[in-house]
């Protein structure tokens, strides 16, 4: 059994190992050093949640604090990527995409196509997603469907420490622009992670649990919730197969379709808003390509179509949890 570390340590280790391996890898973002220019410690914070702590001591000027100017520094990361660096840029919360989106979707995403295949933009934008911290409407969203919508971007959503490290190393080595979404509720998750460097290819879903009655597709934090639900359902005699796509762009359609072919029933769990989200997207895909296998309507377990609320009472209602997943699975399992 391999060593166990936290999700956030897995991220740090991936950055550390890639910065050690390749001098063109740089890290930039708000407070990623976390103390530049102050009167106290230089790398006091090491990221707003300490994820990049320790890298400054090892790599000095290759990790840079930025002004709170997302357009400028996200754009700078993109520009530097076209000029031979491999920047990993931290957009602290995905909610902040509104103040830098142009650089991502009009610039980075389109260079290669607009320039006739001659541009290479190996930039990674790391960003936190997800509710559960009472952080309210502007610090809790799961906006990855917006990026998934844009041709030219790759979108990665790890659900465990093992996934986090391997997918981040792949993202850094990948020659296309990558949006790397880290669910903040997973940072403290512990799991087995090899200490060596490794990669996980994009577009390959993980079959988290094998089962025969109902397919559950889940992302990020929802994967753990789906596992809890599946354990409960197993005692009732309902066997769930859980698929974690790991990347929404590219999306491993085959693994989902093959599973639905076996189970005939599909529940999609997505913490993003229901309209034009991943649940809707995957449901549409299966309805088109796997209709003949379906023995029940596809169920989507998502938050309501509202902003993320502040009050704990409301936020707990907002986030899809194991109980709602179980209910949805029972529904499709019982459908005759």
């Amino acid at each position: 059994m391999a060593r166990k570390i936290l999700f956030q340590q897995a991220i740090n280790e991936a950055l550390d190992q890639e910065m050690a391996r390749d001098s063109s890898v740089i890290v930039m973002g708000e407070d990623v050093v976390g103390g530049t220019g102050g009167n106290g410690e230089m790398d006091a914070w090491g990221g707003v949640l300490g994820v990049t702590k320790g890298l400054y001591g090892k790599y000095g000027d290759r990790i840079m604090d930025t002004p709170i100017s997302e357009s400028a520094f996200v754009g700078a990361a993109i520009g530097a990527a076209t000029c031979g660096l491999r920047p990993v840029c931290e957009l602290m919360f995905i909610d902040f995409l509104g103040v830098c989106f142009d650089q991502i979707y009009n610039q980075a995403a389109k260079f290669r196509y607009m320039f006739g295949g001659k541009a290479k933009t190996p930039v990674v934008i790391r960003t936190m997603i997800g509710a559960g911290f009472r952080a309210a409407a502007q610090h809790s969203q799961c906006l990855y469907p917006i990026f998934t919508h844009i041709p030219g971007l790759k979108v990665v959503i790890p659900s465990s420490p093992y996934e986090a490290k391997g997918l981040l190393i792949q993202a850094i080595r990948d020659d296309d622009p990558v949006i790397f979404c880290e669910h903040k509720a997973l940072y403290a998750m512990e799991g087995e992670v090899p200490d060596e460097s490794y990669t996980i290819p994009f577009g390959e879903a993980n079959i988290v649990r094998e089962g025969s009655d109902v397919t559950i597709v889940a992302l990020a934090r929802m994967v753990g919730f789906a596992q809890k639900a599946a354990a409960t359902l197993a005692k009732e005699g309902i066997s769930c197969e859980i698929i974690d796509p790991r990347t929404t762009s590219p999306l491993d359609e085959d693994t989902i379709l093959e599973s639905v072919e076996n189970t005939g029933r599909l529940v999609i769990v997505d913490e993003a808003s229901p309209r034009c989200g991943m649940a809707a997207d995957i449901a549409a895909m299966v309805a088109q390509k796997g209709f003949a296998s379906l023995q029940a309507p596809i169920a989507m377990v998502t938050p309501p179509h509202t902003p993320v609320p502040f009050s704990g009472v409301l936020e707990d209602l907002y986030i899809p949890g194991p109980a709602r997943i179980e209910a949805a699975v029972r529904n499709v399992a019982e459908y005759a």
Binding site: P194, Y198, I200
Partner: peptide, 12 residues
């Protein structure tokens, strides 16, 4: 299969 892939995906 997953264990084998995990091994194969290690650098080197």
């Amino acid at each position: 299969i997953d264990d084998m892939l995990k091994f194969k995906r290690l650098d080197g």
